[in-house]
């Protein structure tokens, strides 16, 4: 599993690749929280385009960041969801809290 994190204006873009499960969760949580702090971003965009597997541990990382960011007045969005991830996102109810966009540019437009 790998994470690519890039700041664009007020948004931290988090591109997740590989299996987003319990093994990845701790590292992702720490890395994203540290970068949120050091780079001073307000919003987070999760690009899930490279995710090959996700379960409730991976979803927990997204939800945990959502709680943290919205407490400080920021927003969270998700983009590039692969078909195999769509069903589990919908079943989890996370899509009722966090908007999902087809690609990064559409999401960034909404977060701006």
């Amino acid at each position: 599993m790998s994470l690519e994190v890039q700041k664009q204006h007020d948004t931290l873009i988090v591109r997740v690749c590989g299996e987003f499960d319990l093994r990845a969760a701790d590292y992702c949580r720490r890395d994203i929280d540290q970068k949120l702090k050091t780079q001073g971003a307000k919003h987070i965009l999760f690009n899930l385009g490279g995710v090959t597997f996700i379960d409730s541990s991976g979803l927990g990382v997204i939800l945990g960041r959502y709680r943290k960011v919205t407490e400080n007045g920021g927003k969270v969005a998700i983009s590039n969801v692969p078909p195999r991830v769509t069903r589990i996102l919908e079943l989890s109810g996370i899509t009722r809290l966090i908007p999902v966009y087809a690609n990064e540019s559409l999401a960034l437009k909404e977060l701006a």
Partner: peptide
């Protein structure tokens, strides 16, 4: 941080 979704899934 876990969503309590394990048994739901």
């Amino acid at each position: 941080e876990r969503m309590g979704l394990g048994f739901v899934f």
